[in-house]
């Protein structure tokens, strides 16, 4: 148990510290790298909870894909640091307000959980002990919540198509490579045999 506690405190400390560094780092690329560290240690916390499937998904989806795109964009930005600093004072009240509301909400939720106020009414769903947590997630996701699950898939699909529609523009004069045409092209269609008389050239 002691080892688990040590692991928890180390991971939690790294997560919080990395989260703080995300907002306080001067270089935006460093911010994203700290964000990745925060994701990674959050995945470690999931492993401690025994939710190894969620941990792996967190790493695959957020660290492996989302954060790569973040990094991709941030690296190509030409950030003016002085301008960034100037905006700071203006956004402090708004940011502070949002942070304050979030803090109050979290305190309320955690105090109710601690006193088992709202949760005591219905039993916490217990994972069956004989199946892995992939299987138990699958059982719940594809039975009780199948409609919600499919609906969220549709929402993502719509968002994806929307992003493509918004950014796709056909330039009328752009030349594109049509691979099928190139493959289908044979000597008959691609070549013309002409007989040229000596001394006259091709002459159109």
């Amino acid at each position: 148990m002691a080892l688990q506690a040590i692991a928890f405190y180390v991971l939690a400390l790294v997560t919080v510290a990395a989260g703080l560094a995300v907002v306080s780092a001067r270089n935006p690329v460093h911010s994203v790298l700290f964000l990745i560290l925060a994701f990674f240690s959050a995945a470690g916390l999931f492993v401690l909870l025994g939710a190894e499937f969620l941990a792996m998904l967190l790493v695959v989806v957020y660290v492996g894909a989302v954060a790569v795109l973040f990094l991709f964009v941030v690296m190509m930005l030409d950030v003016d640091f002085i301008q960034l600093k100037q905006g700071f004072a203006r956004y402090v009240p708004l940011g502070g307000l949002v942070a304050g509301i979030l803090a109050v909400e979290m305190i309320v939720v955690s105090s109710t959980v601690a006193s088992r106020g709202a949760a005591s009414a219905n039993d916490a769903p217990m994972a069956a002990t004989d199946v892995s947590n992939i299987e138990s997630i699958g059982r719940v996701l594809y039975t009780h919540y199948i409609y919600f699950f499919q609906a969220s898939g549709l929402v993502l699909l719509v968002a994806m198509i929307g992003a493509i529609v918004l950014t796709l523009r056909h330039r009328p004069h752009a030349r594109r490579q049509v691979i099928a045409d190139q493959v289908a092209r044979g000597p008959k269609s691609g070549m013309r045999v002409v007989s040229i008389k000596p001394g006259e050239g091709v002459g159109e």
Binding site: E52, F53, M56, V59, V60, V63, G64, A65, V68, I134
Partner: peptide, 15 residues
């Protein structure tokens, strides 16, 4: 028991 996902996750970090 998520071995294959683990390898997939690690190899996606290689980038």
């Amino acid at each position: 028991n998520v071995g294959i996902l683990y390898i997939f996750a690690i190899s996606s970090l290689g980038v």
